[in-house]
Simulated scan of single mutants.
Amino acid sequence: MTLLSNTLKLTLRKYSTGKLWQEVSIPVPWGEVRGKWWGPTNLRPVLTLHGWQDNCGSFDRLIPLLDTNKVGFLAIDLPGHGYSSRLPNGFYYNNSTYLLTVKFIQKHFNWAKVSLMGHSLGGLISYVYTMLYPNIVDLLICLDGAKPMINPQGVSMMAKNYDMFLKQNEYVYSDKEPPSYTLEEMKQLVHQPNKGSISLETTPYILHRNIAPSKLYKDKYYFTRDPRLKCGNSSLFSQDEYLAHAQNMTGPMFIAKYKQGSYYEVKENFYEVLDVLKRSSTDCDFNYFEGTHHGHLNNPETIAEMLQRFIQRHNIENRCNNGISPKIVNNNNTQSYLFQ
């Protein structure tokens, strides 16, 4: 089955790069997970996970710079993000939710092996999934996010998060429209956090799956991501457990650390685990790159060539599958208000 199969009746879309992708909707028990499938559909892709409160548009500038002829990419919106379904009323977003999402996707496509690429939160989820299933993940790519952070104030932070969750959960299921802003204001709201991690020029790549027009105010928009995402997340394991299990992670891994990014914990925790990974992995390709936490979005050319070489080096597993079902191809993509 080829990318241009008439049976699938694919809707092809282009950005200025000319690279092709298609919108897909993958069924999960609480609704659907939406995403973009880049490259051939008859080959198992690299499942690609974005960062906290971002969406799969985070990879719109990086993936076109990679060779998608032999290895495609399925970049998804995590639950509550982008176009993906929100969790039901009363459910909390945490690492277990995202790990199970990967599991449901693997089961849906009946993949014997999984290739993972993630940024920030997506990198953490990819890392833990590899830690849990080291014999199933054939390659791991972590972009400024790998081992989950250990918060020394974990107990008090969890209590605050639960209190915030109750407020946000009530707000989500009320009829009240979220606060609305002009497009320029929204760009600033995406740009300013985390020391301007997302450049103003690249904010549309995050916004275009993340906003809807206000019904109350002309020329204003509101964020459509689930407000419950604002409630923090906790690590599933201790530092000692991460150190112990890193010894079992023998597969190839590419770990990128951006110099202007933060560690969000005592940085020695990261390097302790990294030292173990360098000994256990058949190829622990760790590199520093210039740029902010969202360097893969702002300046993807700085990392693309090295990342491509890593993928080529380890693209040795059989990626053939039965193709994607026409049922998951989504031809009714939500209108973009930023890419006309």
Rank of each mutant, 00 (worst) to 15 (best):
N287H: 14
Y181V: 08
K187A: 15
F237T: 01
I125A: 00
T250C: 07
D163A: 11
H208W: 12
V102W: 01
V137Y: 02
R34A: 14
V155F: 10
T17L: 03
T203Q: 05
M149C: 05
R228D: 12
N248Y: 09
N333F: 15
N269A: 01
I141N: 07
S25Y: 02
Y181M: 08
N89K: 14
Y173C: 09
W52T: 09
F223R: 15
T2A: 13
N55G: 10
I324F: 04
D240C: 02
G118D: 02
F254T: 08
P152I: 05
Y173H: 14
L4E: 13
N330W: 12
D275P: 00
F237M: 12
L274E: 08
T48M: 02
R34D: 12
L297E: 03
N169K: 04
K195E: 09
S174G: 11
T68P: 04
H191E: 09
S96N: 09
M253C: 10
L124S: 03
C231E: 07
Y162V: 13
L338E: 10
S120F: 00
D138Y: 13
L4G: 11
K278M: 07
L338G: 12
G196T: 06
T48L: 06
N169S: 11
A75I: 07
Y133N: 13
N299V: 11
K230I: 13
Y242D: 04
K113A: 03
D60I: 06
K230S: 14
L78P: 05
L207W: 11
Y181L: 08
D60T: 12
Q260L: 10
K9Y: 02
I76N: 04
C56M: 14
I311N: 03
G31K: 03
G251I: 11
K19L: 06
D285F: 12
C142G: 03
S281R: 01
C56F: 05
T282K: 10
L307A: 05
K113F: 09
G232D: 05
D283T: 03
G82M: 05
M157L: 10
I136V: 12
T68H: 09
Y173K: 08
K147G: 02
P300N: 01
I316T: 15
G31F: 02
